[in-house]
Computed example of a mutant assay.
Amino acid sequence: MIDQWVREALENEAHALYLTSQNVNEEYVKAVEMLKDCRGKVVVTGIGKSGHIGKKIAASFSSTGTPAFFVHSAEAVHGDSGMIEKKDVVILLSNSGETAEVLNVLGIIEKIGSPCIAITKNHNSTLGRRCNAVLSYNYEREADHLGLAPTTSALLQLAVGDALVVTLCKVKGFTQESFHLFHPGGSLGDQLSRKNTGSDVHS
């Protein structure tokens, strides 16, 4: 029974990923173009599980040559929004698109004048209507038995963020050498060092 539950959870999330991949549209193209043309930094904001996902997305951008940082939505309305500049591009995460703290940050961003990208399940939400590009995703239910815990939705936010990161890498011509510049340490750095010097690589 336990193995069946594990399999059902994985299949639920895999199906949701497939549905989302089949609905990639011009909004995604617009978002990548915005990120490519960004002359400042990429700022990611969210709260709760979306906040945790946002931290990873920001880290992935930075590690692949696009300067980025995460701002917690609640802290942003208590002064941290001062880190955001007009030349930045802001990515806002909210599954519902109606999260109060995220919408409060959006109000500040609109006054600053930064272009913004929404990652949300609801294209027609308040967040979706007010952002320059809306990356919406599709899923039938969360993976837990109650259909409440942010599981499938969190995975989709992460996957959409990853898709932006890897697509931007291709658009900007990010190379293995570039990757090594930002990853000189650890086993990955060692592997890339040996590969760049022509040494045999086995890990």
Rank of each mutant, 00 (worst) to 15 (best):
E13F: 04
D162N: 08
E33P: 01
T45S: 15
D37T: 06
V24K: 08
N23R: 15
A159M: 14
E33A: 05
G46L: 10
L192W: 07
I2M: 12
T66I: 12
G46E: 12
R129G: 13
L155I: 12
P67S: 07
R194P: 02
V24P: 09
G147Q: 09
L127I: 02
K172H: 08
S187M: 15
Q191D: 07
A149N: 09
D144S: 06
G107R: 08
I112T: 04
K36R: 15
V171N: 14
Q22G: 12
K170C: 04
V32K: 09
N25R: 07
G128C: 13
L146P: 07
Y18D: 13
R141D: 09
I53R: 03
A143I: 03
P67T: 08
H180F: 15
V29H: 10
L93E: 07
L192E: 07
Y28L: 13
S94H: 01
G189E: 12
G107P: 00
S153P: 02
F182K: 15
H202W: 11
N196P: 00
Y18M: 05
A14F: 10
N23P: 04
S178P: 04
H145I: 11
L155D: 11
V24T: 12
E177H: 07
Y137K: 02
N23Q: 15
Y139N: 02
A149I: 03
C131D: 09
G173M: 10
H202F: 15
G107M: 01
I2K: 10
I91F: 10
G79Q: 11
N23F: 11
A154V: 00
A163D: 06
H180A: 15
E140H: 05
S50H: 05
I47S: 07
L158F: 13
S94C: 08
N23Y: 11
P184I: 06
S187I: 14
I47K: 02
L103S: 03
W5K: 15
C169T: 02
A159T: 12
A149F: 07
E177I: 04
L19N: 08
K121H: 05
K56V: 13
E101S: 13
E110I: 00
A76P: 00
I119P: 01
Y18C: 04
S81L: 05
M83R: 09
S63Y: 13
H15V: 08
P150E: 12
I91N: 06
N138P: 00
V171G: 13
H15Y: 08
K49A: 01
K55R: 15
N23W: 11
L148P: 01
I47D: 03
L192Q: 04
A59R: 06
L148G: 11
V171R: 15
H52C: 01
M83I: 06
A14M: 14
T99Y: 00
R129Q: 14
T66N: 11
